[in-house]
């Protein structure tokens, strides 16, 4: 790493992220105890229900919180040309894709003992898969070899359209066919109290993990952005400076 890059890059962690990370870790341990040991088995699904405590929270946080951050970041970027929100939108999409893939894997693992197959042509599975590909496309646009401002503007337009599409895809496949278990969490919930608490705890845990990842990813993107903003002339000047000081060292 050149000295100029070293000067720009700092740690992606801070006191705030360390506290958040510790909270997320403690919360994850409690979620594992709640989900695997303390909460009861379900009558029909038996132990497979325990996957719900990570599957549902990752879906809520990934599909709505993470891609929601991308939507908000994209709108604010187009209005104010703020680099902060542009990088926030990028960070949200990357984490959203990660959570989306996790939702599909845990869903398939739950489907095998419950439905007898890893994959069913079910609205939520299908729409989540299409959403994953939609945001992979968004990330591909973010890697386009273009002027950074042009790339950010195009990505922002795509970030807004993709969220609208997420809702359309979800609705269209709901109309198409339905097999997935309906929404079980609501005011008239029939869930066991501890099961409901574990699910809510799962949402809290995944929100903490998401916030922790988002802060780290955003800071890394910020450092990359700062490094990219350094002009070639500055980099050459810094490199010459390094060379001169090494020559001076040898002379001594």
């Amino acid at each position: 790493m050149s000295s100029i890059a070293r000067k720009l890059a700092g740690p992606s962690s801070s006191r705030g992220t360390r506290i958040l990370g510790a909270l997320a870790l403690v919360s994850t341990v409690l979620l594992l105890l709640l989900g695997l040991i303390w909460s009861p088995r379900e009558v029909d699904q038996a132990d497979a229900v325990r996957l719900m405590y990570v599957h549902v929270p990752s879906a809520v946080v990934g599909l709505y919180f993470a891609f929601g951050v991308t939507l908000v970041g994209s709108i604010v970027y187009l209005r104010k040309q703020s680099d902060f929100w542009d990088l926030m939108a990028h960070a949200g999409a990357e984490i959203g894709v990660l959570f989306c893939a996790f939702v599909l894997v845990t869903g398939a693992l739950w489907g095998r003992p419950t439905w007898g197959v890893y994959w069913e042509w079910d609205p939520r599975i299908t729409s989540t898969t299409v959403t994953l590909v939609l945001y992979l496309g968004y990330l591909a646009v973010r890697r386009m070899d273009l002027d950074p401002v042009v790339r950010s503007r195009r990505a922002a337009i795509l970030g807004i359209i993709s969220f609208a599409n997420l809702l359309i895809v979800k609705q269209s496949v709901e109309w198409w066919r339905g097999l997935h278990q309906g929404s079980t969490v609501g005011i008239d919930t029939q869930m066991d109290g501890l099961m409901f608490f574990t699910l809510a705890w799962g949402v809290l845990t995944f929100t903490l993990i998401f916030a922790w990842l988002l802060m780290h990813r955003f800071r890394l993107a910020w450092y990359e952005h700062q490094a990219a903003a350094v002009s070639l002339d500055d980099a050459i000047a810094a490199r010459r400076g390094e060379h001169r000081s090494s020559l001076a060292g040898e002379a001594i």
């Binding site: 299409v130 590909v133 939609l134 496309g137 646009v141 496949v173």
Partner: peptide, 13 residues
């Protein structure tokens, strides 16, 4: 390769 990746999921509905 980018246009099909962007367009096909969008046109699924």
């Amino acid at each position: 390769s980018l246009v099909p990746l962007l367009v096909i999921p969008v046109l699924a509905p």
